[in-house]
């Protein structure tokens, strides 16, 4: 069976898609890619549906051996990917051959890379999603992070004849340290001057940052009286403040309900920016209006539509067989993509 083989595990690599939607009323977390924007771009590049499952690779990448020919693309945080020890570009498609090795040299920027393979992984969805929920030990590949000697089966590996790249203006700037928020549902539970502090001071990501939530260090936030509310649903990006006054941002694997006062909520488009930050990074919060945040989300979706449209006319160029070889050849400074189709000739 077509598959990839994990030679070295790296720090934390899981399969994620757009999440397990619709089950929060039963206490089941959404999960899914921390940076959905990068996941979508990786999938669009290799000709998949935007929400197909891909590898979410955290900080220290794995070593992967391809057992079949296919097309891959890596987006998001730059972990310096190489194929057979030759550096490759981010946000670009590469055709790999059986025996090719993908390695990562180290984190250059961001925190999480996304690797999509053409056709996706052959993983049985759990509750409609291929996302891994590690705490619950279900979804993705055996409900856990990938480890050495795992073989992850591929669904429909395909050779993409076109060399696809994403233009720089579609890629988010991870040096941006301003996270935009909408003020929270329990704003009345905070002292007035505390809201000013929250919106003007710097906050630092602590070591307690994972797929569930980010604990921040910074000027303490003060409640009028008490930090607890009657337990209720929590949205992605909600910023809860427990009694110690230190904010916690709720991320992909958050519990479906919570009982702390929420001072603000990170806007949808900036969640993917936050997903690319790591412990030690400093951020500032900026307040914007709901309408403004919704327009940003619409604009982002339109950008993705544009990228997809540009590529989709070429979808038929994806081959489903493994008899095609593609080579990049540089002649007199110009790069050519040479496609070789194997055909048996009768003798």
């Amino acid at each position: 069976m077509s598959s990839i083989r994990i030679l070295r595990a790296g720090l934390l690599t899981t399969i994620q898609d757009l999440g397990r939607v619709g089950f929060q009323q039963y206490g089941i977390p959404v999960s899914g890619a921390m940076d959905k924007y990068s996941l979508k771009l990786a999938n669009i590049l290799v000709g998949n549906d935007r929400g197909e499952g891909a590898l979410e690779i955290t900080m220290l990448g794995p070593e992967i051996l391809f057992n079949c020919g296919t097309t891959i693309a890596i987006t998001g945080g730059n972990l310096t990917p190489t194929i057979n020890d030759v550096d490759i570009d981010m946000y670009r498609t590469y055709v790999v051959k059986p025996g090719d090795k993908l390695k990562f040299k180290g984190l250059k920027n961001g925190c999480r890379g996304y690797m999509a393979v053409s056709g996706g992984f052959s993983i049985k969805p759990v509750m409609g999603s291929k996302s891994t929920y590690m705490r619950g030990q279900f979804g993705g590949f055996k409900g856990r992070k990938l480890k050495e000697e795992d073989f992850i089966p591929l669904k429909k590996p395909g050779i993409l004849l076109e060399d696809r790249k994403i233009k720089l203006n579609y890629i988010k700037n991870y040096n941006n340290r301003v996270v935009r928020v909408i003020l929270g549902t329990e704003l009345h539970m905070f002292k007035k001057d505390t809201i000013d502090v929250f919106l003007s001071e710097e906050y630092q990501l602590t070591n307690q940052c994972d797929r569930m939530g980010y604990r921040l260090e910074g000027p303490g936030l003060k409640h009028v009286s008490g930090s607890d509310v009657i337990s209720g649903g929590i949205n992605l990006g909600a910023i809860q403040v427990p009694g110690d006054g230190k904010p916690i941002i709720m991320m992909a694997d958050r519990q479906s309900t919570g009982g702390y006062a929420k001072i603000a909520n990170v806007i949808s488009t900036d969640i993917s920016l936050l997903a690319q930050m790591k412990p030690g990074d400093k951020i500032r919060f900026q307040r914007i209006a709901v309408e403004e945040a919704q327009q940003l989300l619409i604009d982002e979706e339109k950008m993705l539509d544009d990228v997809e449209k540009k590529f989709s006319s070429l979808k038929e160029k994806i081959m489903e067989k493994n008899t095609t070889r593609v080579y990049n050849i540089r002649v007199k400074g110009i790069e050519y993509r040479v496609v070789v189709e194997e055909e048996k000739v009768k003798s």
Partner: peptide, 17 residues
């Protein structure tokens, strides 16, 4: 997109696009 009922509240998640 989904609705999360709780003790005294309901969180409605919708498609803002």
């Amino acid at each position: 997109i989904e609705v999360i009922p709780a003790y005294t509240s309901l969180l409605v998640i919708y498609d803002a696009t």
